[in-house]
Amino acid sequence: MRSQSHEQRRKDSIETTFRILLLGDSALTIEFGNEIDQKINARAIAFAETIVRQRWNGIHDIVPTYRSVTVHFDPLQWDSATLAKRLKTLPRREPGRAELHGILHEIPVLYGGEWGPDLEEIATFAGLQPAEAIALHASIYYRVYMLGFSPGFPYLGLVPERLAIPRRATPRTKVPAGSVGIADRQTGIYPTATPGGWQLIGRTPVAMYRKTRSNPCLLKPGDSVRFKPIAQDEFDHLSREGRHDND
């Protein structure tokens, strides 16, 4: 009896964090909360994994984001109500180590100069010397909350309050591949050259995204990232080893 009530309680506690939203006739979003929070994000990632493991036919994509999972399906094979019902009966579990911390990646970054053209502005915003701003950015572990915006772009957080500079008023038309940027409490890495409005602090020579690989992204949601400041010669050496996909 005791285990049953415990089971019931456990189920209830997860159920309250779970609501299903319609995203048209071909997608559902399962929302676990309304804030950027490690535990909520880990729940979303764990649930996305659970859905992946069902290997249901007619499911096109399962996309974990900050606090939700979007499931894209073929509307000729599924209807929203049936899928929602199936999702509700899936086993729930509290996230484990994999979803809470993932794999730790150390990402080398050449800070400032032409590689991080906004370093001075970021330092001024923070009221720090450029070297102190670099040290602060590289001092903590960031969580990969999600991938989005462009192939392999990781949304990392949370940036120390002091460095949380807003986006640039006018986005750049082309941000070079490998650029490391800050936008409020988020930091991210541009895997390919794209337009972008984040403030650029440095650049990594490590390829984030290779479309020729079946597993094209280096980082996964739930992973941890720490930036390691490197000098020009090391940047050049590493650049020769692993080029970005479309420089």
Binding site: A48, H60, D61, I62, V63, P64, T70, H72, L147, G148, F149, S150, P151, G152, F153, Y209, K211, P216, C217, P221
Partner: peptide, 9 residues
């Protein structure tokens, strides 16, 4: 399809 979780459109 199959790569939106990697940010692939």
């Amino acid at each position: 399809y199959g790569y939106q979780h990697d940010g692939v459109s």
